[in-house]
Design a protein around this nucleic acid. Sequence first.
DNA 1: TGATCCCGCCATGGG
DNA 2: CCCATGGCGGGATCA
Length: 557
Amino acid sequence: CVNCYRMTCGVNLHCSNKAVLTYRREVGSVDPWTPTSNLKMLISAASPDIRNREKELCMDADGRGGVDSTQRVEINPFLLYKFLARYPDCPNPGLNNDICLDDVATELNVERRRIYDIMNVLESLHMVSRSAKNRYAWHGRTKLAQTLAILKQVGEEHKYGQQMQQIRQRLLDKEFDFDGEEKENAEEVELESTEQGQKELFFVELPGVEFKAASVNSRKDKSLRVMSQKFVMLFLVSSPRVVSLDVAAKILIGEDQGADRDKNKFKTKVRRLYDIANVLRSLKLIEKVHVTEERGKKPAFEWVGPEEFPPCVSTPLVPSRSSVENCAKNLFSSPGTKRGFTRHPSLIKMAKSIQDDRRKINSAPSSPAKTSLGQHIKPSSEDNVVLFLKGVMTPNVKSHPAFLQVIHRASTSRQLRVTVRYMLTSDRVTLSSTGSKASPAQEMTPTNIRLLKPAAASPNTTQQAHQLHSPSPAIFNFTLQNLGLISGSGPGSCFSAPQTPECANALPGPLALQQRSMVFFKPVSPVPIQQSVALISMQQVRSATINVQPVCLTRFW
DNA sequence: TGATCCCGCCATGGG
DNA sequence: CCCATGGCGGGATCA
């Protein structure tokens, strides 16, 4: 699958992201597997004025071009790519994360109206929050896991899973009866029974992200934001995580106003779903797929974002208990005097579970069943913990469930100060390396360079450059072999981690960490390569092999 | 013809 | 009335 690096093509999933396919054809010389080259492709394919502007502004050293500029292009995803490129995933809270609507509109060369749509979706994920008129604060993905956890919970409470199932079934029935006509009535009755007792869903707030600029919040609808949250919920409660457009639209209509569900309403909802989906796609949270049925293919989207999330996550790379505390504190804080949105009851529940969680961890010093980081690695300055992620298909490691899980556990450990580092190993690069040209090192994003660049290797030759992009299995295996954690190499490596019960049943539940432990994750979605996580104490690494340290510990970040 | 989504009219609510 | 915001649907484009 050219565009679908995850090989999502399953029995009834067929990837058909025409945009990517098209772009790839147009600019075939670009290595399509790097984030930056993707961006370049999008830029190349964008409308002429934007493209020219882009050329003036920055790169395009290779002078590629020659794309038919008359074709209609997807501005929306492109816009967001550009937009996201300007803001870090995990912004430093101390720095200026202010976003001015006018500036963005000007820079991206679009009308304000378009920015509102993007912002609304981002706001629904709490990646931004409105700070004032014309102004937003950028949060990046720092709150994403937390938001998703809440959305999932709310989605479960609303029984979206069952609803979707019902609607699917209904559509299926329709398909087999050749008269779609007669069903109208039955459908109406059923729908009503489904929705009855279901309260209207409000915007799901996040503790700590208060809505300022009250004047703006008074507006009652905010449908795009609410709709976006609902849409995400649908993914989070369904399994497999594939949601077809029509099912989503039907559910979203159902809740709006019970009465009218005519064709127009449906069409409008679908339009809006595309708006939302484009943003989510740019965020790499969903991908376009098709579900195949007797009657033909239906457009659908598949969730490719994080699969599991801890109830509350502190800021990655800077784990601090205080943020966890704050989280709970905020959740319990007395209801604000004037709040623009309803605080969902599940927040309270969640806060309690967080507290319980913390209590357990802090007050059970040596329960073997409930191990925490601190109990296995004695606290000292030497005992930093190094985390390796392998085979992570998610482009954004920091939002990977395994990563977040570890961070969460680490951040709730009282005794241990944990330094977490990570190495990105992108299988999409590795798997697609046949024949494709390596991209120059300059095309790598700063993030990638920081994460992957081994100082020992001078990225001059294409081979080495390519290695920069796919150091994953080789170097990773090499490292772990040196550490004596695995044996063999290559795709079928045998991981000989200590076979403890804790390891076997590591998730869900507390991670069992020992001086030397590896935890394996079995992916829910069809990921071809097993995902694994290794946690090793720094001390152990130092004593293991000298070779390892420069490659993986010192140089990689 | 269905999928996709650009474009911008116009409603809304505050000042 | 002006402004910021954003709901909404016509209709263009493409496969």
